[in-house]
Design a protein around this nucleic acid. Sequence first.
DNA 1: CTCGTATGTCTAGCGGTGCTAGGATCGAAT
DNA 2: ATTCGATCCTAGCACCGCTAGACATACGAG
Lengths: 200, 200
Amino acid sequence: MSVQERKERERAGRERLILATARELAEQQGWDAVTTRRLAERIEYSQPVLYSHFRGKREIIGAVALEGAAEMAAALRAAASASSSAAASATDGPRARVTSLARAYLGFAERNPAVYDAMFQLDGGLAFATEDTPEPLKDAFAALLERLGEVAGDGVNPALFTEVFWAALHGLATLTRAGRLPPGDAERRVELLVDRLAMI
Amino acid sequence: MSVQERKERERAGRERLILATARELAEQQGWDAVTTRRLAERIEYSQPVLYSHFRGKREIIGAVALEGAAEMAAALRAAASASSSAAASATDGPRARVTSLARAYLGFAERNPAVYDAMFQLDGGLAFATEDTPEPLKDAFAALLERLGEVAGDGVNPALFTEVFWAALHGLATLTRAGRLPPGDAERRVELLVDRLAMI
DNA sequence: CTCGTATGTCTAGCGGTGCTAGGATCGAAT
DNA sequence: ATTCGATCCTAGCACCGCTAGACATACGAG
């Protein structure tokens, strides 16, 4: 029995190694550089080993995306609670919480571009907006919804409002990183977005 | 002289054929299906011919993107003027113009997903937000700016406002098409976006 | 302790990709 | 008619994702 357990531990460890290596390589040189050959070489195994853990490259991307979704959800919740636990939480109120939520979202995308790509730009074979959407993805959306629901405004479906707000953040994140928007005015764009969308 | 002119005409015609074929193939089966071999076969030439017109696949994508930018600019201007030339233009005013502008943008993205990808999702080697940005791209942004400037609100830089509005539209377009947003509520999201962002 | 077996890993290779070197061919100009 | 230059194609490079089948290793049974 103990032998089998040890093997399972080793196997799980190797799977974490694969994902961590893929992620690191993607962040360093982009997902195009994450080839099965390079990945195999870095983990010091041959290519077929990858296929005993994942069906293929797409599934590796999907696994990294799920990791990232969990981290993003945590980052969003941390940002929201941090801004409310600070000195004067009652006065700055929901306005400051939404702003720091938006900054946290864009900050995550900026600090983890490859992970963000895995989540939203690449095909990781994940289901979205359906009942069999993986839990971490639903939870990341829920983290947004928790803070944005209170500023949706009267008579506006909180989920619908969150979708629009999220889309705007996603647009800012992707266009900024692709060099489609002048990089200097990022902060002003965030403030404008929050001022207009959020009903304080 | 006439011989040379004929050859140049033939060459220009073949270049249009390449782009039209690439675009058609991309719209039918996605850009992944646009390989140099398939493209060459469809235009009934060998692969190297492609490289006498374009540096590589990236440049073909970029050329399609420029075509698309010109079309999008025209579509946006048409939508804006159509809504104002309709019956009661003075009463519905800028609000209706902005809504139809947004619908036109999202409609273009939905009807020409491959072209939209070439413009904003893929690497076509084009410069953005710099002085040497190709004219069609600047013009498409200008088409947005023309209509959105009047609803930016007091003291808000029209260009900055246009960037934010554009980012929101871009987010809606990409997330919707990737199945990341429930497809049914598209129209309600547009209305919410326009209601909140545009200062009527 | 030895021996089959079963698990795990690797080597080698498939069909595909973007891209290019070098030779053949064809048409224009002399 | 012949040369010469532009034009195009065949063939091939290195790389991609992925897989079949050989091999070795480590296990459990006797």
